[in-house]
Amino acid sequence: MLSTKDISINNGRRLIIILLCIKKRPDIIFAITDNAAIGAIKALHKFKVKIPEEIAVVGFSNSINSTIVSPALTTVDQPGDKIGRTAVRFLIEEIENPTNDVITKTVEIKTNLIVRDSSLMV
């Protein structure tokens, strides 16, 4: 498993080149962002790897770019607007009702998988 803090298209491309040098290639790539996944798709195209037949690609965030790459990117829809609204609501509550205690809150916000052409779903 490769890991990185750089989530750019260029780094996605770079990491695929490393993966393609491995004797046993992965069946799927799950990228931390759609941009990194798009970089992966671009590199896979360059090396004539069939997507999704040889290697499937999945991104994370459901950015507008996920629909304009070919093949269209399967992605996890991360509802950024809902995450932002929730964070602001908790921040305002904290400002309006300050306490000296440190309070941690765990909030789960539903995501969903948007299946497109970069993955095979059976």
Rank of each mutant, 00 (worst) to 15 (best):
Leu73Pro: 10
Glu94His: 11
Thr111Ile: 15
Pro71Ala: 01
Arg14Asp: 08
Lys105Asn: 05
Val57Gly: 00
Val57Leu: 00
Ala72Asp: 14
Thr99Ser: 12
Lys48Cys: 02
Val115Arg: 08
Ala37Met: 15
Gly80Arg: 10
Thr106Val: 11
Ile114Asn: 09
Ala37Thr: 15
Ile64Trp: 00
Glu96Val: 03
Leu15Asn: 00
Thr75Gly: 07
Ile64Leu: 00
Asn97Ile: 03
Thr106Gln: 12
Asp77Phe: 09
Ile92Phe: 09
Ala37Val: 14
Val76Asn: 07
Asp81Arg: 12
Ile41Cys: 10
Asp6Tyr: 02
Glu108Trp: 13
Asn62Arg: 04
Pro52Val: 02
Val76Ala: 09
Ser118Leu: 04
Thr86Ile: 09
Phe47Met: 02
Lys24Asp: 14
Ala72Leu: 12
Asn112Val: 14
Ile109Thr: 05
Gly59Leu: 01
Leu15Gln: 00
Lys42Leu: 10
Arg116Val: 09
Asn10Ser: 13
Phe30His: 12
Lys24Trp: 12
Ile64Cys: 00
Leu44Thr: 02
Ala56Ile: 05
Asn97Ala: 06
Met1Glu: 03
Thr106Glu: 13
Glu96Arg: 09
Pro26His: 14
Ile28Thr: 11
Lys48Asn: 09
Asp27Leu: 06
Thr111Leu: 14
Ile51Ala: 04
Val49Glu: 08
Phe30Leu: 15
Asn112Ile: 14
Ser8Thr: 13
Ser63Gly: 03
Ile55Glu: 05
Thr67Val: 10
Ser70Phe: 08
Phe60Val: 04
Ile83Trp: 04
Phe90Asp: 08
Glu96Tyr: 04
Ile95Phe: 05
Phe60Ser: 02
Val122Asn: 11
Asn65Pro: 06
Ile38Asp: 01
Ser119Leu: 13
Pro26Glu: 13
Ile18Ser: 06
Leu73Ser: 11
Ser66Phe: 05
Lys5Asn: 10
Phe90Met: 12
Ala37Ile: 15
Ile38Phe: 02
Lys5Ala: 08
Ile103Ser: 11
Arg25Leu: 08
Lys46Phe: 08
Ser66Met: 07
Lys5Ser: 09
Ser119Asn: 14
Glu53Ile: 03
Asn100Gly: 10
Ile16Gln: 01
Gly39Trp: 01
Arg14Trp: 04
Arg116Trp: 07
Ser119Gly: 13
Ile17Arg: 02
Asn10Pro: 07
Asn97Trp: 05
Ile83Asn: 06
